[in-house]
Computed example of a mutant assay.
Amino acid sequence: MGKKLYVGNLSYSLDDQYLVDLFSEFGTVESARIVTDRDSGRSKGFAFVEMSSDSEAQAAIEKLNGTDQQGRAMNVSEAKPMAPRENRGGFGGGGNRNNSRGGGFGGGRPRY
């Protein structure tokens, strides 16, 4: 199994293929995905790259971390596992566990 890398501080003009080409110098790139905003589709300035082996991933970290890529100092490190998300609430979902009134539409105020 490969090693997943976090790549941050990216120029917003970069695309997935740029990362594949850049990281391929250090081994086989299993996947490269720039994270985009769900609504606008624009880059959020970071990505995840998966290399085929730990040694290739380590070489990429050592050689690429801090390098200038289109005017920005790129950060490359081992990706950390995603933390579990809490229920953020929403419309009537009662996201605040300490408030028994639920949430979403101004809860608790008298209606006129």
Score class of each variant (00 low, 15 high):
M1T: 09
G2M: 07
G2L: 06
K4M: 08
L5I: 08
G8C: 06
N9S: 11
N9L: 05
S11A: 15
S13V: 04
L14V: 14
D15M: 00
D15Q: 02
D16G: 01
D16I: 05
Q17K: 02
Y18K: 00
L19H: 00
V20T: 09
D21G: 00
F23T: 06
F23R: 02
F26C: 08
G27D: 09
V29S: 03
R33W: 02
I34S: 00
T36Y: 05
D37M: 01
D37K: 01
R38D: 12
R38E: 15
R38L: 15
R38I: 13
D39W: 08
G41A: 01
G41C: 00
R42L: 14
S43F: 01
S43W: 01
S43C: 00
K44S: 06
G45E: 05
G45W: 05
F48G: 04
F48E: 06
M51F: 09
S53A: 11
S53F: 07
S55F: 10
S55H: 10
Q58T: 12
A60R: 11
A60I: 13
I61S: 07
I61K: 10
I61E: 08
I61W: 09
E62R: 13
E62F: 07
G66H: 14
G66R: 15
T67A: 12
D68E: 12
D68T: 12
Q70V: 11
Q70T: 02
G71C: 01
R72H: 10
A73L: 08
M74W: 03
M74N: 03
M74T: 13
N75S: 14
N75T: 15
E78D: 07
E78Q: 10
A79M: 06
A79L: 05
R85M: 14
E86V: 13
N87S: 09
G92F: 04
G92A: 07
G94N: 07
G95A: 07
G95E: 05
G95S: 06
N96S: 11
R97W: 00
N99T: 04
N99R: 06
S100Q: 04
G102Y: 02
G102T: 02
G103D: 07
G103H: 03
G104W: 00
F105T: 10
F105L: 10
G107V: 14
G107S: 12
R109Y: 13
P110A: 12
P110I: 13
P110G: 12
R111Q: 13
